[in-house]
Nucleic acid binder design. Structure first.
Lengths: 116, 116
DNA sequence: TTGACATATTCCTATATGGGAATATAATAG
DNA sequence: CTATTATATTCCCATATAGGAATATGTCAA
């Protein structure tokens, strides 16, 4: 089997750096395709393709206005990533105060208390 | 150009569901390859390959003990994902209280204060 | 209608899988 | 040394890109 499609889920969709850039831009507000093209210095067809992927996984929505197509971020679609990631938060938040380390420290301090 | 390598960065590495499963398992504690194979019902070569990817991006570390190779999670390596994701948090945490909405609400409440 | 602008789609190619099967390597027991 | 256990590596294949180039589609203006 080959690698899963980028459209199979949000994790695959955001694996591509340029798609994350597009999302970051859209986080500041709705943009027409050309707005993205200019802001991020990408080629128009590539942007349209990336937007297609993002749309398919629900990360963006579109609406037409005249000849422009305005893309808008749908941040909610990122929640699965956040949900998966949250339990790992402990590993870097105060990374040197992980539970096991704290326990060891507590032990040695207890020992020190006795000897000091 | 083809898709970036799964070993190019953490985002690509965690795009594969089975690799996330492996990480989830290792989050509970160090495991030998066969421990993972049994726990997750995967084939040994596949597990070794996935571990190779995870190791290359720094998500796991290994140490040998006898004939076993014990893999351990290195959660710190997930921080880039968390960092990228955090600004989007507002979109789903109290998703109906997004900043723009809050501002509107504040405005109308202010108006109400005056009238009440 | 015709032209110009905005975006989407198609075709092509090089590349990187992920799984299966078979095999190689490493380490220990006897 | 030899068999066994534990893991890694190699080969092969089907598939899905991501980018470039060219072109199709859509929409509005005159």
């Amino acid at each position: 089997m080959a690698r899963a499609a980028t459209t199979s889920d949000v994790f695959n969709a955001i694996a591509e750096p340029q798609r994350r850039q597009i999302l970051d831009l859209l986080a500041k507000g709705e943009q027409p395709v050309n707005g993205i093209v200019e802001a991020l210095q990408m080629k128009q067809p590539q942007v349209s393709k990336h937007l297609g992927v993002l749309k398919e996984v629900g990360l963006v929505t579109v609406r037409s206005e005249g000849r422009q197509r305005l893309y808008r971020l749908n941040g909610d679609a990122l929640q699965p990533v956040y949900t998966w990631l949250t339990p790992y938060e402990q590993f870097w938040k105060e990374s040197h105060d992980r539970l096991d380390v704290l326990l060891q420290k507590a032990q040695s301090e207890k020992a020190n208390d006795k000897s000091e």
